[in-house]
Design a protein around this nucleic acid. Structure first.
Length: 837
RNA sequence: GCCCGGGUGGCGGAAUGGCAGACGCGGCGGACUCAAAAUCCGCUGUCCGAAAGGGCGUGUGGGUUCAAGUCCCACCCCGGGCACCA
């Protein structure tokens, strides 16, 4: 078999290993490092084919291409397997890594394996922990008690990003809410930068939109509301006035606020509730807190059950009048201030709530003519601002202003009166990073009764989990049950202390692996500044779009944070310059995946048809970004095509039986032109990731060469040799093995001994001669009234007069022209003439 | 509901406003063969026609243009994302 031979060749010759001081222009091509689940599946094949093609193409173009590969080797599947089988997850994982590595190699993927990383290696753990501690020192990591998402299936908490429609994105279990103290990354500090810098990356619009939505910036105002009784007398507690703040995006409608709403978890609920309402409020709060995320998100539920009056009032600062305080489960404690003003006139949900609870509705924006809706959210002149509900002393007159103007005036007044200010909120929440699982990177802190939370000193890293741990999930970290691990001494005071037993979300590991690839040999830092400067940012990142708000957001956050900490260059603000998200593979309409059990094994196809055919079929089947139905993948056609190439190109092959010497004839020149055309087309289609078109061009060219070879005249030796050589070079990024083999055999068969033993992947990418791209003759399209009536071969230099004359000379055209002279003649020499009659 | 994509032969899909359907699959025919496979060559949108040739044709309806799959407007369908975030 030729494929193992060349795979060994690339390995033994270090063809795709690059050093950090390589003088060539640098290029960093990276495919998302995989979770090692065993042998590669079709999704891997598709993914790595694109990346490998790019690595080989750019190498031939003269770049030093950094093309590393590693393994995202922490995670739940290995731990669950360990629970089932009793084997240690490390054993299990390392076996699967080797399986995956070998099958990636069998696909023909070439990587600088010296640089490989595995998340679970002690060396990698050490640096993950080291980075965690730097972020802890910088205040970017903190611990807090909050209501969190708990997945009962995975027996761990989840980040917000891992909850989709109220269920765990991994196991599909409905997520529960629990109040727990957990570790967080302060990703919200970077919300604005994460939003702004999306302008600086070349990513699919879909992914950018998802990130924008996820960050969810909204502009508005925040202001204080004083708690009062029904008569407007301030309520006090311990002699202090009681107040809370509300966030709104529509401060301009404040005069229309007829009530306000607190989240059930709001800290003032107990304080403000009047005695006659207390029983109802407590029942409501208990029920709301017990409602699962998925039910709370459901819009099907009866609105009357979703809210509750507290009996308390708060003063609307604009009118100076008290408005009732309600509770509603749709007001989220974790967003804004956990309290909102309600303006039923201009907000549909408030309108519905007011209707159900019998609260007044005041319109503060003039409805357009013919408006028959309920709440009106559009623009218009303000009314009732102030109006029926009155005005507090000094409150602004917004009447007649449009929405934008009135917003500004309202905010200005809030600011000048000291009760509020302009405010921007984000939907993005801090990243919950701790997990109650075993197979992850331990969080390197200890709890000391005397000193509190203490970081493990750098020289004691890595903190590694012991091997003899009971994995069975209990809802607590497995490490907690291991006394030897749990009990330690405080690094500060030397007294007794307990270790943190939670581990990190595996997305922490993947948030910096691309930096380690730049400098995997570094022993005193996770990576040196110089090495990162040499390679980052990643020029081309390749992976699945399912990571749009997970890995891709977290990695961006890490890059910015590390940049601010001086651990990567200050100018490095974005890790991935270009992102390509390839489509998934379906079988019988459902995603092909191990968990669905509907895999087609790539290994089997490689055994029978070869890796090159498999790669070519993946390139051919569809545009790379599209989802693929496996049924559409034309393996046989691609295998057949490669056989055609083989028979044409192999020395002594059956297709070329005689060749002609001497001067090239016009037929030979046409083939030579086609060769240059192919160079141009393949380069262009590669550059725009239109690989399915590239494959069509290969096939069309080979068809043309077959016709050439079998023509009566026969092929001209030098022309044919050049054509085939160029074809092999252009094909070599896509089908590296067969191209290398044929190139080598052809070099061996040459008279010139110095050409022998040649390696195609070390040859420079062919360049088209622009003069050869201009055809000598072109097909002139002759239209009458826009309909094609004839096609005439004309000289490429034909001018308008030549073209019109040639067109008019055509019998087919004359039939349609009639006797009258054409009303108008449109000429685009030498390609088109259109007669309008 | 809002925001993106996208609707082209039997199928996957090509096509800087200028020959619609490249290339592949499938199908049909021919060559080679005792035969089959493999291989090679050709045909293959649709309707009318014996043919030459012509009509129609890129989700639907309008528009711009000498010329529209491509640009504009409205609508229909499919896919994806967001959706009590105040």
């Amino acid at each position: 078999m030729i494929e193992p031979h060349w795979q060994a060749y690339w390995r033994d010759h270090a063809t795709y290993e690059v050093d950090n001081d390589d003088p060539r222009p640098r290029s960093y091509v990276l495919s998302m490092y995989p979770y090692p689940s065993g042998a590669a599946h079709m999704g891997h094949v598709r993914n790595y084919t694109f990346g490998d093609l790019l690595t080989r193409y750019r190498t031939m173009r003269g770049d030093a291409v950094l093309s590393p590969m590693g393994f995202d080797s922490f995670g739940l599947p290995a731990e669950n397997a360990a629970i089932r089988t009793g084997r240690h997850p490390r054993e299990f994982t390392e076996e699967r890594i080797e399986e995956l590595r070998s099958s990636i190699t069998r696909i023909g993927g070439v990587y600088d394996w010296r640089r490989t990383v595995r998340s679970h290696d002690p060396d990698y753990i050490r640096w993950t922990q080291w980075l965690f501690l730097r972020m802890l020192e910088a205040g970017l990591v903190y611990r807090r008690d909050a209501t969190v998402n708990w997945c009962p299936g995975c027996q761990t908490v989840l980040a917000n990003e891992q909850v989709v429609d109220g269920v765990c994105d991994r196991s599909g279990d409905p997520v529960e809410r629990r109040d727990l103290e957990q570790w967080y990354f302060r990703i919200t500090d970077y919300a604005q930068q994460l939003l702004d810098d999306l302008d600086d990356v070349d990513w699919p619009e879909r992914v950018i939109t998802q990130q924008r939505n996820w960050i969810g910036r909204s502009e508005g105002a925040e202001f204080e509301m004083e708690v009062v009784d029904a008569d407007g007398v301030p309520v006090t507690r311990d002699g202090e006035p009681v107040a809370f703040r509300v966030f709104t995006t529509r401060p301009d409608t404040s005069y229309g606020m007829t009530f306000c709403v607190l989240a059930p978890e709001h800290p003032l609920v107990d304080v403000v509730t009047t005695d006659d309402r207390r029983a109802d409020v407590e029942a409501f709060v208990t029920r709301a807190r017990g409602t699962s995320e998925i039910d709370r998100l459901s819009t099907e539920r009866n609105l009357a059950e979703r809210g509750c009056a507290t009996g308390a009032y708060a003063r609307n600062p604009f009118t100076g009048r008290p408005v009732p305080i309600h509770l509603a489960d749709y007001v989220l404690a974790s967003y804004g201030t956990g309290a909102v003003m309600a303006v039923p006139g201009e907000d549909q949900r408030d309108w519905e709530f007011a209707t159900v609870f019998g609260l007044p509705i005041v319109e503060t924006v003039q409805r357009p003519q013919g408006w028959d809706g309920e709440a009106y959210a559009g623009d218009g002149g303000h009314v009732n601002s102030p109006g029926a509900l009155g005005a507090a002393p000094g409150a602004p007159d917004l009447n007649g202003m449009d929405v934008v103007t009135a917003k500004a005036a309202a905010v200005d007044w809030l600011a000048s009166s000291g009760s509020g200010e302009r405010r921007v909120n984000y939907r993005l929440r801090d990243w919950l990073l701790s997990r109650q699982r075993f197979w992850g990177c331990p969080i390197p802190v200890v709890y000391c009764d005397a000193c509190g939370i203490v970081a493990v000193p750098d020289d004691q890293l890595p903190v590694l989990a012991p091997d003899d741990v009971e994995f069975t999930p209990t809802g607590q970290s497995p490490l907690r049950s291991h006394d030897g691990f749990l009990n330690t001494t405080c690094p500060d005071c030397g007294g007794p202390a307990r270790r943190e037993t939670d581990t990190m979300d595996t997305f922490v590991d993947s948030s910096w692996y691309y930096l380690r690839f730049c400098d995997p040999w570094s022993t005193d830092r996770p990576f040196s500044l110089d090495a990162v400067r040499a390679w980052m940012p990643v020029d081309q990142y390749i992976g699945g779009a399912e990571h749009a708000v997970l890995h891709l957001m977290y990695a961006r956050f890490f890059t910015k944070a590390l940049s601010d900490l001086g651990l990567v260059p200050a100018a490095l603000r974005e890790p991935f310059q270009h992102l390509f998200t390839q489509g998934m593979i379906r079988l019988d309409g459902v995603k092909m995946s191990k968990s669905k059990g509907n895999l087609v094994a790539p290994e089997q196809i490689i055994d029978t048809l070869g890796a090159d055919a498999l790669r070519l079929a993946h390139l051919q089947v569809k545009p790379p970004e599209d989802d693929v139905d496996w049924e559409d993948v034309g393996l046989e056609g691609c295998a057949k095509f490669l056989h055609r190439v083989w028979r044409l190109a192999v020395p002594g092959g059956p297709v070329v039986t005689s060749v002609r010497a001497g001067e090239p004839t016009p037929v030979d020149v046409a083939v030579e032109r086609a060769r240059h055309r192919l160079v141009e087309d393949i380069s262009v289609t590669f550059d725009r990731w239109a690989y399915n078109v590239s494959v069509a061009r290969y096939m069309a060219f080979v068809n043309e060469l077959y016709r050439y070879v079998q023509s009566d005249e026969g092929p001209h030796r030098a022309t044919l040799d050049d054509a085939v050589d160029t074809l092999l070079q252009l094909l070599s990024p896509a089908c590296p093995h067969i191209s290398a083999e044929l190139w080598w055999r052809r070099s061996e068969a040459r008279d010139d001994a110095s050409a022998r033993g040649a390696h195609i992947h070390e040859t420079p990418w062919p360049v088209a001669d622009p003069s050869m791209l201009v055809e000598e003759t072109v097909t002139l399209i002759v239209q009458v009234n826009g309909k094609v009536r004839d096609r005439i071969e004309v000289h490429a230099g034909a001018d308008e007069a030549d073209c019109v004359a040639a067109a008019q000379a055509s019998e087919k055209v004359r039939v349609h022209l009639g006797v009258d002279p054409p009303r108008k003649v449109i000429a685009r020499p030498p390609k088109l003439v259109n007669f309008v009659v």
